[in-house]
């Protein structure tokens, strides 16, 4: 009944932030079926605190589904999912909202809220807790990191696709959770803002948060991720540091398209290019 009537007495609930390198979220032997089709099959993956893990793979490989499973939105048909040392289903909806934040692929809004109102929604999980005192500082920081400060007073629905994406990211950052799950945060962004978003992801990782990020651009993934997991047909085809995982042979097979991989002349990071 208390839940029905709202947050009359929010329980203090300060999530323990795991030490860097420890497992923040994990999928073990996860399988998801959609009708007769296996969307995910036997996926085992650790997400560690302090790292940026990029999920890459062709369209329909199961990247978004895996993100949905890790976030607790979707219960896998087989296998286990853990979040901060506990089965994800054991956390309440409110507890989850203080532990993981999710940037969806499609950003929607039913009513014309302003940008600052939308970003402020990200602080809702902390209402009534001590962390609420940080609201203004966290909001200002999230808006600065995503370069949306000058949009604060604008209506969200009047923004372009790329601007909406950055505002949605600011809301997710403002949630201040130890696990960030970002589904294609760079879609519709220009070159400058793609780099900006990846820098924000790196910055959160350096503070000890775990960041999982779905990307299509393999060069971006190679340049910014600590590890990459290549998904193909619902399975993890390879997982590890980009320089080891991104080989012409693997990518050619996974994408069914000839691919060449060259080292960047200055940094040595792999440059992935389709053979043209």
């Amino acid at each position: 009944m208390r839940g029905l009537l709202g947050r009359l007495s929010p329980q203090p609930d300060e999530p323990q932030r795991p030490a860097a390198g420890q497992v923040a979220a994990a999928a073990r032997g996860v399988g998801v079926r959609l009708g007769a089709r296996a969307v995910l099959a036997d996926v085992t993956l650790d997400v560690r605190s302090g790292e940026v893990l990029a999920l890459v793979g062709p369209n329909g490989a199961g990247k978004s589904t895996l993100l949905g499973v890790l976030s607790g939105d979707r219960e896998p048909d087989v296998g286990d999912v853990e979040l901060l040392g506990r089965p994800v289903a054991d956390w309440s909806v409110a507890q989850l909202s203080r532990r993981r934040a999710v940037l969806p692929q499609q950003v929607a809004l039913a009513f014309p809220f302003t940008v600052s109102e939308v970003v402020r929604m990200g602080r809702r999980p902390w209402a009534g807790t001590d962390a609420e005192d940080d609201d203004e500082r966290v909001l200002a920081e999230a808006m600065a990191q995503t370069d949306v400060e000058q949009l604060a007073g604008r209506g969200f629905l009047s923004l372009s696709g790329g601007e909406r994406g950055r505002v949605a990211l600011a809301r997710v950052l403002a949630q201040q959770t130890p696990l960030l799950l970002l589904d294609e945060p760079t879609a519709a962004l220009d070159l400058h803002h793609v780099e900006l978003v990846l820098q924000v992801a790196r910055e959160r990782a350096s503070r000890g948060d775990a960041v999982v990020i779905v990307l299509h651009d393999l060069v971006t993934a190679a340049a910014h991720a600590d590890r990459v997991a290549v998904l193909a047909d619902g399975r993890v085809a390879a997982c590890g540091p980009p320089a080891q995982v991104f080989t012409a042979e693997l990518l050619t097979r996974v994408y069914s398209h000839p691919v060449e991989v060259l080292p960047h002349p200055r940094t040595g990071a792999p440059l992935v290019l389709p053979v043209r």
Partner: peptide
């Protein structure tokens, strides 16, 4: 939307 609202508790 449904999922984002759930993500926010």
């Amino acid at each position: 939307g449904d999922h984002p609202a759930r993500h926010l508790g």
